[in-house]
Design a protein around this nucleic acid. Sequence first.
DNA 1: ATAGGGTTAG
Length: 598
Amino acid sequence: MSVCHHVLFQPLVHFLRHVSFPPDPHLLPTALKSCPALPLVRALHAATVAAGIARDPFVSSSLLRTYLRFGATPDARAVLDGMPQKTVVGWSALVAAHAAHGDTEGAWRLLKEMRRGTAGGGGGVEPNAITWNGLVSGCNRSGRARDAVVALARMHGEGVLRPDATGVSCALSAIGDLGTEAVAVGEQLHGYTVKSGCRLGFVNGKDLEAVELFREMQAQGIEPNSVTIPCVLPAFANVAALMHGRSAHCFALRKGFLHDVYVCSALVDMYAKCGRVRNARRIFDAMPSRNVVSWNVMIGGYAMHGEAKTAVRLFDSMLMCKQKPDMVTFTCVLQACSQAGLTEEGRRYFKEMQHEHGIYPRIKHYACMVTLLGRAGKLDEAYDLITDMPFEPDGCIWGSLLGSCRVHGNVDLAEVAAEKLFHLEPDNAGNYVLLSNIYASKKMWGGVNRIREMMKDMGLKKEMGCSWIEIKNKVHTLLAGDDSHPMMTAITEKLKQLNIEMRRLGFAPSTYFVLHDVEEQEKDDILAVHSEKLAVALGLISTSPGTPLRVIKNLRICDDCHEAMKFISCFEGREISVRDTNRFHHFRDGKCSCGDYW
DNA sequence: ATAGGGTTAG
Protein backbone atom coordinates (compact mmCIF):
# COMPACT_ATOMS: atom_id res chain seq x y z
CA MET A 1 0.00 0.00 0.00
CA SER A 2 2.77 2.40 0.93
CA VAL A 3 4.43 1.70 -2.41
CA CYS A 4 1.23 2.53 -4.20
CA HIS A 5 0.94 5.80 -2.35
CA HIS A 6 4.51 6.61 -3.06
CA VAL A 7 4.00 6.11 -6.76
CA LEU A 8 0.88 8.22 -6.77
CA PHE A 9 2.30 11.08 -4.82
CA GLN A 10 5.81 11.24 -6.09
CA PRO A 11 5.08 13.58 -9.02
CA LEU A 12 3.08 15.80 -6.72
CA VAL A 13 5.81 15.87 -4.07
CA HIS A 14 8.40 16.63 -6.71
CA PHE A 15 6.21 19.36 -8.06
CA LEU A 16 5.59 20.95 -4.66
CA ARG A 17 9.28 20.98 -3.84
CA HIS A 18 9.80 23.48 -6.63
CA VAL A 19 6.78 25.58 -5.98
CA SER A 20 6.72 28.67 -3.88
CA PHE A 21 4.19 31.41 -3.39
CA PRO A 22 4.48 33.94 -4.76
CA PRO A 23 6.08 31.99 -7.61
CA ASP A 24 9.77 32.50 -8.17
CA PRO A 25 10.46 33.05 -11.89
CA HIS A 26 13.63 30.96 -11.64
CA LEU A 27 12.04 27.97 -9.96
CA LEU A 28 8.80 28.01 -11.90
CA PRO A 29 10.00 26.28 -15.08
CA THR A 30 11.25 23.32 -13.02
CA ALA A 31 7.94 23.14 -11.19
CA LEU A 32 6.00 23.20 -14.44
CA LYS A 33 8.13 20.44 -15.86
CA SER A 34 7.01 18.05 -13.13
CA CYS A 35 3.50 19.43 -12.87
CA PRO A 36 1.19 16.39 -12.76
CA ALA A 37 -2.18 17.89 -13.72
CA LEU A 38 -3.71 20.60 -15.86
CA PRO A 39 -5.63 22.37 -13.03
CA LEU A 40 -2.34 22.87 -11.25
CA VAL A 41 -0.87 24.50 -14.36
CA ARG A 42 -3.84 26.84 -14.47
CA ALA A 43 -3.44 27.64 -10.79
CA LEU A 44 0.23 28.43 -11.27
CA HIS A 45 -0.58 30.50 -14.31
CA ALA A 46 -3.04 32.54 -12.26
CA ALA A 47 -0.44 32.94 -9.51
CA THR A 48 2.13 34.27 -11.99
CA VAL A 49 -0.41 36.77 -13.27
CA ALA A 50 -1.14 37.87 -9.70
CA ALA A 51 2.58 38.18 -8.99
CA GLY A 52 3.06 40.21 -12.16
CA ILE A 53 5.66 37.84 -13.65
CA ALA A 54 3.44 36.20 -16.29
CA ARG A 55 5.07 38.19 -19.08
CA ASP A 56 8.60 37.15 -18.13
CA PRO A 57 9.87 35.41 -21.29
CA PHE A 58 11.28 32.53 -19.29
CA VAL A 59 8.03 31.98 -17.41
CA SER A 60 5.66 32.42 -20.31
CA SER A 61 7.49 30.03 -22.61
CA SER A 62 7.45 27.40 -19.86
CA LEU A 63 3.74 27.91 -19.40
CA LEU A 64 3.20 27.59 -23.12
CA ARG A 65 5.13 24.33 -23.31
CA THR A 66 3.33 22.89 -20.33
CA TYR A 67 -0.11 23.75 -21.66
CA LEU A 68 0.78 22.02 -24.90
CA ARG A 69 1.98 18.98 -22.98
CA PHE A 70 -1.57 18.67 -21.65
CA GLY A 71 -3.08 19.36 -25.06
CA ALA A 72 -4.57 22.66 -23.90
CA THR A 73 -4.00 24.56 -27.14
CA PRO A 74 -6.36 27.50 -26.40
CA ASP A 75 -4.59 28.19 -23.10
CA ALA A 76 -1.24 27.99 -24.86
CA ARG A 77 -2.50 30.45 -27.44
CA ALA A 78 -3.56 32.82 -24.68
CA VAL A 79 -0.08 32.68 -23.17
CA LEU A 80 1.50 33.42 -26.51
CA ASP A 81 -0.83 36.36 -27.02
CA GLY A 82 0.32 37.77 -23.72
CA MET A 83 3.98 37.59 -24.64
CA PRO A 84 5.51 40.99 -25.41
CA GLN A 85 7.91 39.53 -27.93
CA LYS A 86 6.83 36.28 -29.48
CA THR A 87 9.60 33.94 -30.47
CA VAL A 88 9.73 31.55 -33.39
CA VAL A 89 9.90 28.76 -30.83
CA GLY A 90 6.59 29.67 -29.25
CA TRP A 91 4.88 30.00 -32.62
CA SER A 92 6.37 26.74 -33.87
CA ALA A 93 5.19 24.81 -30.85
CA LEU A 94 1.69 26.12 -31.35
CA VAL A 95 1.64 25.40 -35.08
CA ALA A 96 2.79 21.82 -34.50
CA ALA A 97 0.20 21.33 -31.76
CA HIS A 98 -2.67 22.53 -33.94
CA ALA A 99 -1.61 20.27 -36.77
CA ALA A 100 -1.20 17.34 -34.39
CA HIS A 101 -4.74 17.86 -33.13
CA GLY A 102 -6.08 17.66 -36.65
CA ASP A 103 -6.66 21.41 -36.97
CA THR A 104 -4.72 21.97 -40.18
CA GLU A 105 -6.65 25.11 -40.96
CA GLY A 106 -5.75 26.56 -37.57
CA ALA A 107 -2.11 25.68 -38.11
CA TRP A 108 -2.04 27.51 -41.45
CA ARG A 109 -3.81 30.49 -39.89
CA LEU A 110 -1.17 30.64 -37.17
CA LEU A 111 1.60 30.45 -39.73
CA LYS A 112 0.11 33.42 -41.58
CA GLU A 113 -0.36 35.30 -38.34
CA MET A 114 3.17 34.78 -37.15
CA ARG A 115 4.57 36.23 -40.36
CA ARG A 116 2.22 39.17 -40.48
CA GLY A 117 2.68 39.92 -36.80
CA THR A 118 -0.31 40.26 -34.52
CA ALA A 119 -1.73 43.44 -33.15
CA GLY A 120 0.76 44.86 -30.67
CA GLY A 121 3.03 41.88 -31.18
CA GLY A 122 5.78 43.75 -32.97
CA GLY A 123 7.15 42.71 -36.33
CA GLY A 124 6.49 39.43 -38.04
CA VAL A 125 8.40 36.25 -37.27
CA GLU A 126 9.59 34.06 -40.15
CA PRO A 127 8.94 30.34 -39.71
CA ASN A 128 12.12 28.29 -39.68
CA ALA A 129 12.75 24.73 -40.83
CA ILE A 130 11.55 23.39 -37.50
CA THR A 131 8.26 25.27 -37.83
CA TRP A 132 7.65 23.66 -41.20
CA ASN A 133 8.76 20.24 -40.11
CA GLY A 134 6.53 20.47 -37.06
CA LEU A 135 3.61 21.28 -39.32
CA VAL A 136 4.34 18.36 -41.62
CA SER A 137 4.78 15.92 -38.78
CA GLY A 138 1.71 17.22 -36.95
CA CYS A 139 -0.44 16.57 -40.02
CA ASN A 140 1.06 13.13 -40.27
CA ARG A 141 0.41 12.31 -36.63
CA SER A 142 -3.23 13.30 -36.87
CA GLY A 143 -3.56 11.02 -39.89
CA ARG A 144 -3.85 13.80 -42.47
CA ALA A 145 -1.32 12.57 -44.96
CA ARG A 146 -2.57 14.78 -47.76
CA ASP A 147 -2.17 17.86 -45.59
CA ALA A 148 1.36 16.77 -44.76
CA VAL A 149 2.22 16.47 -48.43
CA VAL A 150 0.71 19.87 -49.16
CA ALA A 151 2.63 21.41 -46.25
CA LEU A 152 5.91 19.96 -47.44
CA ALA A 153 5.26 21.11 -50.99
CA ARG A 154 4.45 24.62 -49.81
CA MET A 155 7.58 24.70 -47.69
CA HIS A 156 9.50 23.82 -50.79
CA GLY A 157 7.50 26.23 -52.89
CA GLU A 158 8.37 29.10 -50.56
CA GLY A 159 11.86 28.84 -51.98
CA VAL A 160 13.34 30.39 -48.84
CA LEU A 161 13.96 27.14 -47.04
CA ARG A 162 15.35 24.02 -48.54
CA PRO A 163 13.62 21.02 -47.07
CA ASP A 164 16.16 19.19 -44.94
CA ALA A 165 16.52 15.53 -44.12
CA THR A 166 14.06 15.87 -41.27
CA GLY A 167 11.41 17.34 -43.53
CA VAL A 168 11.86 14.46 -45.92
CA SER A 169 11.64 11.84 -43.21
CA CYS A 170 8.60 13.53 -41.66
CA ALA A 171 6.79 13.34 -44.95
CA LEU A 172 7.86 9.80 -45.66
CA SER A 173 5.69 8.06 -43.13
CA ALA A 174 2.74 10.24 -44.07
CA ILE A 175 3.12 9.54 -47.73
CA GLY A 176 3.74 5.87 -47.11
CA ASP A 177 0.20 5.60 -45.77
CA LEU A 178 -1.22 7.16 -48.90
CA GLY A 179 0.10 4.25 -50.97
CA THR A 180 -0.55 4.54 -54.68
CA GLU A 181 -2.59 7.65 -54.10
CA ALA A 182 0.65 9.36 -53.09
CA VAL A 183 1.85 9.16 -56.64
CA ALA A 184 -1.16 11.09 -57.90
CA VAL A 185 -0.71 13.71 -55.20
CA GLY A 186 3.00 13.84 -55.88
CA GLU A 187 2.55 14.33 -59.61
CA GLN A 188 0.66 17.53 -59.03
CA LEU A 189 3.35 18.96 -56.82
CA HIS A 190 6.73 20.14 -57.79
CA GLY A 191 10.03 19.76 -56.05
CA TYR A 192 12.42 16.94 -55.75
CA THR A 193 11.87 16.27 -52.10
CA VAL A 194 8.22 15.56 -52.50
CA LYS A 195 8.84 13.29 -55.44
CA SER A 196 11.50 11.36 -53.57
CA GLY A 197 9.20 11.14 -50.60
CA CYS A 198 6.47 9.69 -52.74
CA ARG A 199 8.88 7.25 -54.25
CA LEU A 200 10.07 6.02 -50.91
CA GLY A 201 6.54 5.81 -49.62
CA PHE A 202 5.45 3.98 -52.71
CA VAL A 203 8.22 1.45 -52.63
CA ASN A 204 7.58 0.86 -48.93
CA GLY A 205 9.86 -1.85 -47.67
CA LYS A 206 11.96 -2.13 -50.79
CA ASP A 207 15.35 -1.84 -49.24
CA LEU A 208 17.47 -1.46 -52.33
CA GLU A 209 15.37 1.47 -53.47
CA ALA A 210 15.70 3.04 -50.05
CA VAL A 211 19.49 2.71 -50.30
CA GLU A 212 19.41 4.35 -53.71
CA LEU A 213 17.15 7.13 -52.50
CA PHE A 214 19.42 7.84 -49.57
CA ARG A 215 22.29 8.32 -51.99
CA GLU A 216 20.20 10.58 -54.17
CA MET A 217 19.24 12.62 -51.17
CA GLN A 218 22.89 13.19 -50.35
CA ALA A 219 23.63 14.02 -53.96
CA GLN A 220 20.95 16.72 -53.70
CA GLY A 221 22.94 18.24 -50.87
CA ILE A 222 20.53 17.17 -48.14
CA GLU A 223 22.72 16.01 -45.28
CA PRO A 224 21.63 13.03 -43.20
CA ASN A 225 21.12 13.74 -39.53
CA SER A 226 20.95 11.71 -36.37
CA VAL A 227 17.43 10.58 -37.26
CA THR A 228 17.75 9.75 -40.93
CA ILE A 229 20.79 7.60 -40.17
CA PRO A 230 18.97 5.10 -37.96
CA CYS A 231 16.10 5.26 -40.49
CA VAL A 232 18.20 4.08 -43.36
CA LEU A 233 20.53 1.67 -41.54
CA PRO A 234 17.98 -1.19 -41.38
CA ALA A 235 17.74 -1.00 -45.18
CA PHE A 236 21.52 -1.36 -45.40
CA ALA A 237 21.35 -4.22 -42.93
CA ASN A 238 18.64 -6.06 -44.86
CA VAL A 239 20.58 -6.11 -48.10
CA ALA A 240 23.94 -6.36 -46.31
CA ALA A 241 25.21 -3.15 -47.88
CA LEU A 242 28.20 -3.09 -45.57
CA MET A 243 30.04 -0.35 -47.43
CA HIS A 244 27.06 1.97 -47.26
CA GLY A 245 26.69 1.13 -43.60
CA ARG A 246 30.34 1.87 -42.99
CA SER A 247 30.17 5.22 -44.70
CA ALA A 248 27.14 6.09 -42.59
CA HIS A 249 29.22 5.07 -39.56
CA CYS A 250 32.09 7.35 -40.59
CA PHE A 251 29.68 10.17 -41.26
CA ALA A 252 28.09 9.72 -37.83
CA LEU A 253 31.55 9.76 -36.28
CA ARG A 254 32.47 13.02 -38.00
CA LYS A 255 29.21 14.67 -37.01
CA GLY A 256 29.46 13.53 -33.40
CA PHE A 257 26.35 11.34 -33.62
CA LEU A 258 27.98 8.44 -31.84
CA HIS A 259 26.64 9.65 -28.52
CA ASP A 260 23.13 9.02 -29.76
CA VAL A 261 21.76 5.73 -28.51
CA TYR A 262 19.49 5.34 -31.56
CA VAL A 263 22.31 5.84 -34.02
CA CYS A 264 24.56 3.39 -32.18
CA SER A 265 21.91 0.72 -31.69
CA ALA A 266 21.12 0.84 -35.38
CA LEU A 267 24.83 0.60 -36.20
CA VAL A 268 25.26 -2.40 -33.91
CA ASP A 269 22.33 -4.10 -35.62
CA MET A 270 23.61 -3.21 -39.09
CA TYR A 271 27.11 -4.57 -38.45
CA ALA A 272 25.74 -7.76 -36.91
CA LYS A 273 23.39 -8.34 -39.85
CA CYS A 274 26.21 -7.63 -42.29
CA GLY A 275 28.28 -10.37 -40.72
CA ARG A 276 30.55 -8.18 -38.61
CA VAL A 277 29.73 -9.06 -35.02
CA ARG A 278 33.15 -7.90 -33.82
CA ASN A 279 32.55 -4.39 -35.22
CA ALA A 280 29.08 -4.43 -33.73
CA ARG A 281 30.57 -5.28 -30.35
CA ARG A 282 33.17 -2.53 -30.60
CA ILE A 283 30.45 0.06 -31.10
CA PHE A 284 28.34 -1.48 -28.37
CA ASP A 285 31.24 -1.34 -25.89
CA ALA A 286 31.98 2.30 -26.74
CA MET A 287 28.40 3.48 -26.27
CA PRO A 288 28.13 6.16 -23.58
CA SER A 289 24.70 4.89 -22.59
CA ARG A 290 22.58 1.93 -23.62
CA ASN A 291 18.91 1.12 -23.49
CA VAL A 292 17.11 -2.19 -23.67
CA VAL A 293 17.16 -2.14 -27.48
CA SER A 294 20.93 -1.67 -27.58
CA TRP A 295 21.32 -4.82 -25.49
CA ASN A 296 18.72 -6.70 -27.52
CA VAL A 297 20.32 -6.02 -30.87
CA MET A 298 23.73 -7.07 -29.56
CA ILE A 299 22.39 -10.27 -27.98
CA GLY A 300 20.31 -10.94 -31.09
CA GLY A 301 23.41 -10.35 -33.20
CA TYR A 302 25.31 -13.07 -31.38
CA ALA A 303 22.29 -15.36 -31.63
CA MET A 304 22.13 -14.85 -35.37
CA HIS A 305 25.78 -15.87 -35.66
CA GLY A 306 25.32 -18.96 -33.54
CA GLU A 307 27.49 -17.55 -30.74
CA ALA A 308 25.08 -18.64 -28.05
CA LYS A 309 27.56 -18.69 -25.18
CA THR A 310 28.50 -15.07 -25.80
CA ALA A 311 24.86 -14.11 -26.17
CA VAL A 312 24.04 -15.67 -22.83
CA ARG A 313 27.05 -14.08 -21.17
CA LEU A 314 25.97 -10.71 -22.48
CA PHE A 315 22.51 -11.31 -21.10
CA ASP A 316 24.09 -11.85 -17.68
CA SER A 317 26.03 -8.58 -17.97
CA MET A 318 22.82 -6.88 -18.95
CA LEU A 319 21.26 -7.95 -15.67
CA MET A 320 24.39 -6.91 -13.80
CA CYS A 321 24.16 -3.47 -15.40
CA LYS A 322 20.65 -3.24 -13.95
CA GLN A 323 19.09 -3.13 -17.39
CA LYS A 324 15.65 -4.71 -17.24
CA PRO A 325 15.13 -7.26 -20.04
CA ASP A 326 11.92 -7.16 -22.07
CA MET A 327 10.06 -9.64 -24.25
CA VAL A 328 12.39 -9.15 -27.15
CA THR A 329 15.41 -9.88 -24.97
CA PHE A 330 14.04 -13.32 -24.24
CA THR A 331 13.22 -14.13 -27.84
CA CYS A 332 16.86 -13.32 -28.62
CA VAL A 333 18.18 -15.41 -25.73
CA LEU A 334 15.93 -18.36 -26.55
CA GLN A 335 16.83 -18.13 -30.20
CA ALA A 336 20.52 -18.20 -29.27
CA CYS A 337 19.99 -21.31 -27.17
CA SER A 338 17.99 -23.13 -29.81
CA GLN A 339 20.49 -22.45 -32.58
CA ALA A 340 23.39 -23.74 -30.54
CA GLY A 341 21.52 -26.67 -29.06
CA LEU A 342 21.67 -25.29 -25.49
CA THR A 343 18.42 -27.06 -24.65
CA GLU A 344 18.65 -27.11 -20.88
CA GLU A 345 19.74 -23.47 -20.68
CA GLY A 346 16.84 -22.52 -22.93
CA ARG A 347 14.41 -24.32 -20.66
CA ARG A 348 15.87 -22.52 -17.67
CA TYR A 349 15.51 -19.10 -19.30
CA PHE A 350 11.95 -19.88 -20.30
CA LYS A 351 11.15 -20.49 -16.62
CA GLU A 352 13.21 -17.56 -15.38
CA MET A 353 11.59 -15.06 -17.66
CA GLN A 354 8.31 -15.75 -15.92
CA HIS A 355 9.39 -16.34 -12.35
CA GLU A 356 12.28 -13.96 -11.97
CA HIS A 357 11.51 -11.23 -14.47
CA GLY A 358 7.73 -11.30 -14.52
CA ILE A 359 7.56 -11.48 -18.30
CA TYR A 360 4.68 -13.58 -19.46
CA PRO A 361 5.67 -15.57 -22.56
CA ARG A 362 3.97 -14.57 -25.77
CA ILE A 363 3.28 -16.89 -28.66
CA LYS A 364 6.65 -16.09 -30.21
CA HIS A 365 8.41 -17.34 -27.10
CA TYR A 366 6.52 -20.59 -27.45
CA ALA A 367 7.63 -20.74 -31.07
CA CYS A 368 11.22 -20.37 -29.87
CA MET A 369 10.69 -23.19 -27.40
CA VAL A 370 9.21 -25.42 -30.09
CA THR A 371 12.30 -24.81 -32.18
CA LEU A 372 14.57 -25.36 -29.19
CA LEU A 373 12.98 -28.69 -28.27
CA GLY A 374 12.38 -29.71 -31.86
CA ARG A 375 15.94 -29.18 -32.94
CA ALA A 376 17.18 -31.13 -29.96
CA GLY A 377 15.17 -34.04 -31.31
CA LYS A 378 12.53 -33.79 -28.59
CA LEU A 379 9.76 -33.49 -31.16
CA ASP A 380 7.11 -35.14 -29.02
CA GLU A 381 7.86 -32.79 -26.18
CA ALA A 382 7.58 -29.88 -28.59
CA TYR A 383 4.22 -31.18 -29.73
CA ASP A 384 3.06 -31.47 -26.12
CA LEU A 385 4.12 -27.90 -25.47
CA ILE A 386 1.97 -26.79 -28.38
CA THR A 387 -1.10 -28.60 -27.11
CA ASP A 388 -0.57 -27.35 -23.55
CA MET A 389 0.18 -23.71 -24.24
CA PRO A 390 -2.42 -21.05 -23.43
CA PHE A 391 -2.59 -19.79 -27.01
CA GLU A 392 -4.26 -21.03 -30.14
CA PRO A 393 -1.24 -22.19 -32.20
CA ASP A 394 -0.57 -19.99 -35.21
CA GLY A 395 1.41 -20.41 -38.40
CA CYS A 396 4.59 -19.47 -36.65
CA ILE A 397 4.24 -22.32 -34.13
CA TRP A 398 3.47 -25.02 -36.72
CA GLY A 399 6.17 -23.61 -38.93
CA SER A 400 8.69 -24.08 -36.14
CA LEU A 401 7.58 -27.67 -35.72
CA LEU A 402 7.70 -28.33 -39.45
CA GLY A 403 11.22 -26.89 -39.61
CA SER A 404 12.31 -29.20 -36.80
CA CYS A 405 10.75 -32.17 -38.58
CA ARG A 406 12.93 -31.38 -41.58
CA VAL A 407 16.08 -31.51 -39.45
CA HIS A 408 15.13 -34.89 -38.04
CA GLY A 409 13.28 -36.33 -41.03
CA ASN A 410 10.10 -36.97 -39.05
CA VAL A 411 7.47 -37.44 -41.73
CA ASP A 412 4.51 -38.28 -39.50
CA LEU A 413 4.69 -35.16 -37.37
CA ALA A 414 5.62 -33.07 -40.41
CA GLU A 415 2.34 -34.09 -42.01
CA VAL A 416 0.43 -33.03 -38.91
CA ALA A 417 2.13 -29.63 -38.81
CA ALA A 418 1.83 -29.13 -42.56
CA GLU A 419 -1.89 -29.94 -42.48
CA LYS A 420 -2.42 -27.15 -39.95
CA LEU A 421 -0.25 -24.78 -41.96
CA PHE A 422 -2.07 -25.47 -45.22
CA HIS A 423 -5.24 -24.54 -43.39
CA LEU A 424 -3.81 -21.43 -41.64
CA GLU A 425 -1.68 -20.11 -44.50
CA PRO A 426 -3.01 -21.70 -47.69
CA ASP A 427 -1.06 -19.30 -49.89
CA ASN A 428 2.34 -19.71 -48.25
CA ALA A 429 4.28 -21.68 -50.82
CA GLY A 430 7.21 -22.16 -48.44
CA ASN A 431 5.22 -24.63 -46.34
CA TYR A 432 4.45 -26.86 -49.33
CA VAL A 433 8.06 -26.75 -50.45
CA LEU A 434 9.27 -27.67 -46.98
CA LEU A 435 6.98 -30.68 -46.68
CA SER A 436 7.93 -31.79 -50.16
CA ASN A 437 11.60 -31.55 -49.22
CA ILE A 438 10.97 -33.76 -46.22
CA TYR A 439 9.26 -36.34 -48.45
CA ALA A 440 12.11 -36.10 -50.92
CA SER A 441 14.70 -36.67 -48.22
CA LYS A 442 12.95 -39.98 -47.51
CA LYS A 443 12.65 -40.71 -51.22
CA MET A 444 8.87 -40.63 -50.88
CA TRP A 445 8.27 -39.51 -54.45
CA GLY A 446 4.53 -40.10 -54.20
CA GLY A 447 4.35 -37.42 -51.55
CA VAL A 448 6.52 -35.08 -53.58
CA ASN A 449 4.20 -35.46 -56.58
CA ARG A 450 1.09 -35.01 -54.49
CA ILE A 451 2.38 -31.68 -53.16
CA ARG A 452 3.38 -30.57 -56.60
CA GLU A 453 -0.12 -31.31 -57.88
CA MET A 454 -1.61 -29.44 -54.92
CA MET A 455 0.46 -26.39 -55.71
CA LYS A 456 -0.39 -26.55 -59.37
CA ASP A 457 -4.11 -26.80 -58.61
CA MET A 458 -3.94 -23.81 -56.32
CA GLY A 459 -1.84 -21.82 -58.75
CA LEU A 460 0.90 -21.42 -56.15
CA LYS A 461 4.44 -20.63 -57.09
CA LYS A 462 7.31 -20.78 -54.69
CA GLU A 463 8.74 -17.43 -53.76
CA MET A 464 11.49 -16.34 -56.10
CA GLY A 465 14.91 -17.08 -54.61
CA CYS A 466 16.90 -13.89 -54.35
CA SER A 467 20.42 -13.20 -53.08
CA TRP A 468 22.46 -10.07 -52.59
CA ILE A 469 26.20 -9.75 -52.62
CA GLU A 470 28.18 -6.56 -52.19
CA ILE A 471 31.22 -6.27 -54.43
CA LYS A 472 33.27 -3.09 -54.42
CA ASN A 473 30.56 -0.87 -52.93
CA LYS A 474 27.87 -2.13 -55.22
CA VAL A 475 25.12 -4.48 -54.16
CA HIS A 476 24.32 -7.07 -56.82
CA THR A 477 20.96 -8.80 -56.87
CA LEU A 478 20.79 -12.34 -58.25
CA LEU A 479 17.60 -14.23 -58.91
CA ALA A 480 17.26 -17.97 -59.26
CA GLY A 481 16.66 -18.91 -62.86
CA ASP A 482 17.32 -15.42 -64.15
CA ASP A 483 20.21 -14.92 -66.56
CA SER A 484 19.94 -11.16 -66.91
CA HIS A 485 23.05 -10.32 -64.91
CA PRO A 486 25.68 -8.84 -67.29
CA MET A 487 28.32 -11.26 -66.01
CA MET A 488 26.12 -14.32 -66.53
CA THR A 489 28.38 -16.07 -69.03
CA ALA A 490 31.36 -15.88 -66.70
CA ILE A 491 29.20 -16.93 -63.74
CA THR A 492 28.00 -19.95 -65.66
CA GLU A 493 31.55 -20.89 -66.61
CA LYS A 494 32.66 -20.67 -62.99
CA LEU A 495 29.76 -22.82 -61.80
CA LYS A 496 30.50 -25.49 -64.40
CA GLN A 497 34.11 -25.59 -63.31
CA LEU A 498 33.11 -25.85 -59.66
CA ASN A 499 30.66 -28.64 -60.43
CA ILE A 500 33.34 -30.65 -62.17
CA GLU A 501 35.78 -30.20 -59.29
CA MET A 502 33.07 -31.01 -56.80
CA ARG A 503 32.25 -34.35 -58.44
CA ARG A 504 35.94 -35.15 -58.86
CA LEU A 505 36.59 -34.59 -55.16
CA GLY A 506 33.65 -36.73 -54.20
CA PHE A 507 31.18 -34.09 -53.04
CA ALA A 508 28.08 -35.95 -54.17
CA PRO A 509 25.19 -33.76 -55.19
CA SER A 510 22.58 -33.84 -52.50
CA THR A 511 20.21 -36.78 -52.49
CA TYR A 512 17.51 -34.30 -51.53
CA PHE A 513 15.44 -33.69 -54.60
CA VAL A 514 13.78 -30.46 -53.69
CA LEU A 515 10.58 -29.36 -55.29
CA HIS A 516 11.82 -26.39 -57.23
CA ASP A 517 14.67 -28.43 -58.61
CA VAL A 518 12.29 -31.02 -59.95
CA GLU A 519 10.29 -28.30 -61.65
CA GLU A 520 13.29 -26.64 -63.12
CA GLN A 521 15.19 -29.74 -64.23
CA GLU A 522 13.23 -29.56 -67.43
CA LYS A 523 14.83 -26.21 -68.16
CA ASP A 524 18.46 -25.59 -68.83
CA ASP A 525 20.49 -27.09 -66.03
CA ILE A 526 22.37 -23.95 -65.19
CA LEU A 527 19.21 -21.87 -64.90
CA ALA A 528 18.04 -24.12 -62.11
CA VAL A 529 20.90 -22.92 -59.94
CA HIS A 530 19.85 -21.28 -56.71
CA SER A 531 20.52 -17.60 -56.30
CA GLU A 532 23.11 -17.97 -53.53
CA LYS A 533 25.29 -20.09 -55.81
CA LEU A 534 25.08 -17.46 -58.52
CA ALA A 535 26.05 -14.81 -55.99
CA VAL A 536 29.02 -16.79 -54.73
CA ALA A 537 30.19 -17.53 -58.27
CA LEU A 538 29.99 -13.83 -59.08
CA GLY A 539 31.92 -13.06 -55.92
CA LEU A 540 34.61 -15.58 -56.77
CA ILE A 541 35.27 -14.16 -60.23
CA SER A 542 35.02 -10.50 -59.22
CA THR A 543 37.29 -10.39 -56.17
CA SER A 544 40.92 -11.27 -55.58
CA PRO A 545 41.74 -14.72 -54.15
CA GLY A 546 41.22 -15.03 -50.44
CA THR A 547 38.67 -12.21 -50.14
CA PRO A 548 35.83 -13.32 -47.87
CA LEU A 549 32.39 -13.41 -49.48
CA ARG A 550 29.15 -12.43 -47.83
CA VAL A 551 25.80 -13.36 -49.31
CA ILE A 552 22.33 -12.58 -48.02
CA LYS A 553 19.35 -14.52 -49.27
CA ASN A 554 15.62 -14.18 -48.89
CA LEU A 555 14.75 -17.85 -48.34
CA ARG A 556 16.12 -20.58 -46.17
CA ILE A 557 19.26 -22.17 -47.56
CA CYS A 558 18.70 -25.65 -48.99
CA ASP A 559 20.78 -28.70 -48.11
CA ASP A 560 22.25 -28.90 -51.55
CA CYS A 561 23.58 -25.34 -51.51
CA HIS A 562 24.76 -25.80 -47.95
CA GLU A 563 26.89 -28.76 -49.04
CA ALA A 564 28.14 -26.88 -52.07
CA MET A 565 29.20 -23.89 -49.95
CA LYS A 566 31.21 -26.16 -47.68
CA PHE A 567 32.98 -27.53 -50.70
CA ILE A 568 33.61 -24.13 -52.30
CA SER A 569 35.02 -22.65 -49.07
CA CYS A 570 37.49 -25.50 -48.99
CA PHE A 571 38.36 -25.70 -52.66
CA GLU A 572 38.69 -21.94 -53.20
CA GLY A 573 40.22 -21.21 -49.82
CA ARG A 574 37.59 -18.59 -49.04
CA GLU A 575 35.50 -17.70 -46.08
CA ILE A 576 31.89 -17.58 -47.22
CA SER A 577 29.10 -16.24 -45.06
CA VAL A 578 25.51 -16.79 -46.06
CA ARG A 579 22.71 -15.18 -44.11
CA ASP A 580 19.39 -16.86 -44.82
CA THR A 581 16.04 -15.94 -43.29
CA ASN A 582 17.12 -17.55 -40.10
CA ARG A 583 20.78 -17.05 -39.32
CA PHE A 584 24.31 -16.78 -40.56
CA HIS A 585 26.16 -19.77 -41.94
CA HIS A 586 29.91 -19.20 -41.85
CA PHE A 587 31.64 -21.62 -44.20
CA ARG A 588 35.34 -22.16 -43.80
CA ASP A 589 37.67 -25.05 -44.65
CA GLY A 590 34.75 -27.23 -45.67
CA LYS A 591 32.80 -26.75 -42.46
CA CYS A 592 29.84 -24.61 -41.45
CA SER A 593 29.50 -22.74 -38.19
CA CYS A 594 25.96 -24.07 -37.79
CA GLY A 595 27.31 -27.60 -37.47
CA ASP A 596 24.75 -28.70 -40.10
CA TYR A 597 22.06 -27.95 -37.60
CA TRP A 598 19.56 -25.37 -38.82
C1' DA B 1 13.14 25.70 -25.94
C1' DT B 2 9.70 24.09 -31.32
C1' DA B 3 10.49 18.61 -35.70
C1' DG B 4 12.58 13.73 -36.71
C1' DG B 5 14.10 7.81 -34.84
C1' DG B 6 16.22 1.96 -33.84
C1' DT B 7 15.00 -4.17 -32.00
C1' DT B 8 11.11 -9.53 -32.28
C1' DA B 9 9.25 -16.53 -35.44
C1' DG B 10 9.43 -20.59 -39.18
